[in-house]
Structures are given as C-alpha cells and as structure tokens.
C-alpha cells in the first residue's frame, strides 16, 4: 500500500528506514574518522516524523548560528541531504585541517567555509553511496552548497521544498562522538513521499 503521509508508515517500515539510515551514517562516520584520524562513533540513528513547528522546536534555539552543507538528490530519490555543524564541531574540524579555530561561525573566512563545505560533502556522499548500494537505487547528487545562517531558517529549506504536499518532515539523524565527545551535528536525509514509496518498495516492504 502506498504511503500518502509520512505518519502513515508502520513500525516495520520505520524500522527498515532506520536500518538503512544507520548503515549510511556508519559509512559517513568512517569517512569522518579517516579525515580527522580520530576515533568516531555514532549514536543509534533515529528516524523522526514531525510537524514543522515541532521539528523546529526540538532542534533547539532557532537563532543559533550554524554552518550547513546542502546537497540535492535526484534520480530514484528526490530530496535533500543536509549536514549541519555547530561551532564546536566546526572548530574541531578546522583545527585539524587548518590549525586554526574561529570565535564564532559568522567570522569564518573563505578557506574555512570551503573546508567545511567539503567535509560536509564527503560525509553526505559516503552516506548516499552506502544507501544507494544497499537499496539498489540510482541517486544523483548536486554540487554542494554552503551557508552560515540561523538554524531555523536553514531547516525551513526542506519544508518549503515539499510544503505544498505535507506539513511534516521525515528525517534520519544520528550524532557523532569524536573520541567520546558528543558533537551536536545533524546529518539529515529528507526524501519526498514519492521517493519514500520507491525506497520501501525497492526494499520489498510495501
């Protein structure tokens, strides 16, 4: 049976999405670990279906300045991949690659922004590679786009993309633990409903 709303998914379907999300995230963690040459663990990935306002409220302060890499997916899955860094996480990465840190993300220079864009892109690509191999789906990725902006404003991007069809957001996310220290990052995969149905039928659940 085709799904019309994200909240129509049953427990088994949610579980399967969580499982493939978790495989994608582990691949992303592996590439992050290689880049940083540090131990990276992940928390158990979550899959959430939330109303827009609830999603915004749960993420935290909408005015917090975060950095974000965004990649658009086309092909068998239509949607967005979003990777968000908060200041602490961004500094951990920049310290490693450039030997410098910033007092605030809004003071970021071009080189720093470019490094974060690429790190976000590599994380997203390893996620999607694992995902598409497992699901046997062909997903094309756009070139990465980057912004330093208010968290709330960034999260409305996927909402406006699908806003005419739904009031809900379905996303997978997991936190990275770098040498035991929890980083508040967000790796979000946001697929539209038609793509979700394609994923589920490809995996033989619906």
């Amino acid at each position: 049976m085709a799904i019309e709303k994200y909240s129509d998914m049953n427990l088994q379907e949610l579980d399967i999405m969580k499982e493939i999300g978790s495989i994608g995230t582990s691949h992303a963690a592996t590439s992050l670990s290689k880049m940083l040459q540090k131990e990276v663990r992940i928390t158990i990935p979550r899959v959430s279906v939330l109303n827009y306002q609830t999603a915004l409220d749960q993420t935290g302060d909408p005015e917090e300045i975060v950095a974000a890499t965004l990649v658009k997916m086309d092909g068998d899955v239509d949607g967005l991949m979003l990777f968000l860094f908060n200041l602490r996480f961004a500094n951990r990465i920049l310290e490693k690659f450039m030997g410098k840190t910033f007092e605030g993300l809004e003071f970021m220079d071009e080189l720093g922004a470019s490094a974060l864009t690429e790190v976000g892109n590599i994380i997203i690509c390893s996620y999607i590679n694992a995902f598409s191999q497992l699901a046997g789906m062909n997903i094309q990725l756009s070139v990465p786009s980057f912004t330093i902006n208010m968290l709330g404003g960034i999260l409305t991007v996927p909402m406006t993309e699908c806003g005419n069809d739904t009031d809900q957001l379905m996303y997978f996310d997991a936190d990275f633990l770098i040498e035991g220290e929890k980083m508040n990052d967000w790796l979000l995969m946001l697929a539209d409903i038609a793509s979700l149905n394609r994923i589920l039928s490809k995996l033989g659940v619906s």
Partner: peptide, 8 residues
Amino acid sequence: VTYALGSC
C-alpha cells in the same frame, strides 16, 4: 515575534 525567517 517570529524567529529565523529564511525564505519565509
């Protein structure tokens, strides 16, 4: 007040 208007 409304927070963090992006494209909205």
